[in-house]
Nucleic acid binder design. Structure first.
Lengths: 148, 148
DNA sequence: CGACATTAAATGTACCTACATAAATTTGCA
DNA sequence: TGCAAATTTATGTAGGTACATTTAATGTCG
């Protein structure tokens, strides 16, 4: 659906203005689609993302610093998101023996199992079915260029 | 800069996966750029957006329901954002005489003046300089198609 | 009229972001 | 060695999002 219709605005000052609104709106839409997929499993989107990073490292541990580096949102608070995952026993936290300032964070078996169940539902790919491979490449290239 | 370098990931499962990350990352980047522009004026981005909607209505009032309809983020809490603006005396709130359930919200002269000062800095257009008019149209069309 | 549903806004709660600051440990260098 | 600087995580606080619930006013219909 055209962005004009989504937000009930008939015209835009400029193509810039429209692209800005379209981009922010679409990203929010996507995130909400994903969040809905996780909710039945009791996970928020940031919690899911961190769990996936930990699975990527498994069976090696990750530090908070590594999580922050790989998160989309650099300034968010990985420490407190790990708190929530630890409460649910999806991850473990242990002082790193080699560097006692750091903390080794590992995904548990329960965490791996949960991700396995979610993967079928929550993949981003599902929401891009209406774009061809070529259009996806175009989109990626435009977004990269935008941030220059 | 390419998204691979921004988040230090060397490869993606698919072009879908990459587009998802690119989109969410870029939207966050844009919002943060804007938020930085408003901060010197003591406004958050949602506060700025609501103030702009109110300017669009001025001198007519808006209700909370109207604000929600026009906001990008429909489920956010317009009522509490208006609280903050009222504290700063940038808007006024008065029970609507015609329907005492509703509330008439108006931007004040101080609010209009603040927007006037910000407009030069905070416009979205500024962040799309690296894309041509044609590329902007392409981007808009891809994003619209994505949400189908 | 009077009970009941509907509407508009406000409030409560859990989680998140953004940013500043604190606490503990390690590192580097005089 | 000893002490300041840097590193790593945790915590405090203000503002936002998402969603459920509450409160007050209005509409509806017997």
């Amino acid at each position: 659906m055209r962005i004009e219709d989504e937000i009930k605005q008939t015209s835009f000052q400029s193509e810039h203005q429209k692209a800005y609104i379209n981009l922010v709106y679409t990203a929010g839409w996507l995130q909400q689609q994903q969040a809905c997929a996780f909710k039945p499993y009791g996970l928020s989107l940031p919690q899911f993302n961190i769990l996936r990073i930990l699975r990527g490292q498994h069976p090696l541990p990750a530090t908070v610093a590594l999580l922050i580096e790989r998160m989309l949102d650099k300034t968010s608070n990985a420490s407190r998101i790990v708190d929530k995952l630890e409460e649910k026993q999806l991850v473990t936290r242990k002082v790193c023996p080699a560097n006692r300032r750091a903390v080794d964070i590992r995904i548990t078996d329960a965490g791996l199992e949960l991700l396995r169940r979610i993967d079928a539902d929550g993949t981003a790919a599902k929401y891009f079915g209406s774009l061809t491979e070529d259009e996806l490449r175009q989109l990626n290239s435009l977004l990269d260029k935008l941030r220059d």
